[in-house]
Amino acid sequence: MFNASDANKVSVLYTKNGVLMANAAPTAEGADQVRGTYQYVFDNFNYDLQFNILEIEVSGNTAYARSTSKGSFVIKVSGQTVAVDNRELFIFKKVNGSGK
């Protein structure tokens, strides 16, 4: 979904009070800010990332996942390609039977 640059598809993975703490960006809190952050990112950059899940732990209605992503993004305005090598931590909550 991320590589498809679709802010709506990515943002629905968050709860209505979800938090996104992206590198070099203000913290986005709540559905509108999360969607807005992804929209800004996708409007300005094209991503080509490969994700690797390192660990998933589940406890009741809460879970976390550690992952890495590696690849590149292109800055649309300049055409410059930038290599990226990230580490991520996702915290999930079960909402209506689905992890968000």
Rank of each mutant, 00 (worst) to 15 (best):
M1H: 13
S5I: 02
A7Y: 01
K9E: 12
V10P: 04
S11Q: 07
S11T: 12
V12F: 06
L13C: 02
Y14T: 11
T15G: 14
K16L: 01
N17G: 11
N17P: 06
V19T: 12
L20E: 04
M21A: 04
A22W: 07
A22T: 13
A25G: 11
P26R: 04
P26Q: 02
P26S: 00
T27M: 00
A28M: 05
E29I: 14
G30N: 11
A31I: 13
A31S: 07
A31L: 15
Q33H: 09
Q33C: 08
Q33R: 10
V34Y: 06
R35S: 15
G36S: 05
T37P: 01
Q39H: 10
Y40K: 14
V41I: 07
F45T: 01
L49N: 03
Q50K: 12
F51I: 04
I53N: 14
E55N: 09
I56N: 10
V58W: 09
G60V: 00
G60I: 00
N61T: 03
N61F: 07
T62K: 12
Y64K: 08
Y64E: 01
T68K: 11
S69K: 13
K70C: 03
K70D: 09
S72C: 05
V74I: 00
K76M: 13
K76Q: 11
V77A: 15
V77I: 12
V82L: 10
V84F: 04
R87E: 14
L89Y: 03
L89R: 06
L89M: 11
L89E: 02
F90S: 15
F90A: 13
I91C: 11
K94V: 06
K94L: 11
K94G: 02
V95Y: 06
V95T: 11
G97E: 00
G97Y: 00
S98E: 08
G99H: 05
G99A: 15
